[in-house]
Amino acid sequence: MADNLLSAMVQVFAPLSLMTIGGGQGVVAEIHRQVVDVHHWLTETQFLDDFAISRLAPGPGSLLVTLIGWHIAGVLGAIVATLSIFGPTALLIYAVAHVWSRYRGARLLIALEAGLRPVAAGLVLAAVWVLMLALKGGWIAEGVALASTAALMATRINPLILIACGAALFVGLSQVGAL
């Protein structure tokens, strides 16, 4: 029974690993569908709780599946879920990194790098744009984001300080009713 559960988790999470090009929220919707609607491993409330915790926690957002795995099948479930979603593509990028260093300087690889770099820049800026739109806190939040950008580009400040300041500022403003 337990083995069936674990292998079912592998079958759900491992394909999701390949779907995550560029990461993003589409995967969370699919995880929700599989975990709540299809397999009934968690209730809607449990899923939303886990999602809230995953946003609060540091590290990759996809660690949501680790927490889900834990709630489905304890320690083993957490390990199986984590390796299922991160493992297959980890092997792929390792293989690519290996090939890259072996054939370093080859015309095709240089073209791949040079060709993908404008796309990567566009992707990062698009992700920033989407995040900016999703920010709660209006112009204050946008101001914090831009001020943090300027500080990072102009100084060698530790980013953790900026993040702590952002959190403290929002808490302070909400306490005095300004947010």
Partner: peptide
Amino acid sequence: ALEGAAAAAIG
């Protein structure tokens, strides 16, 4: 607090 942290992290 998380929203404030997320705003700064956009930087």
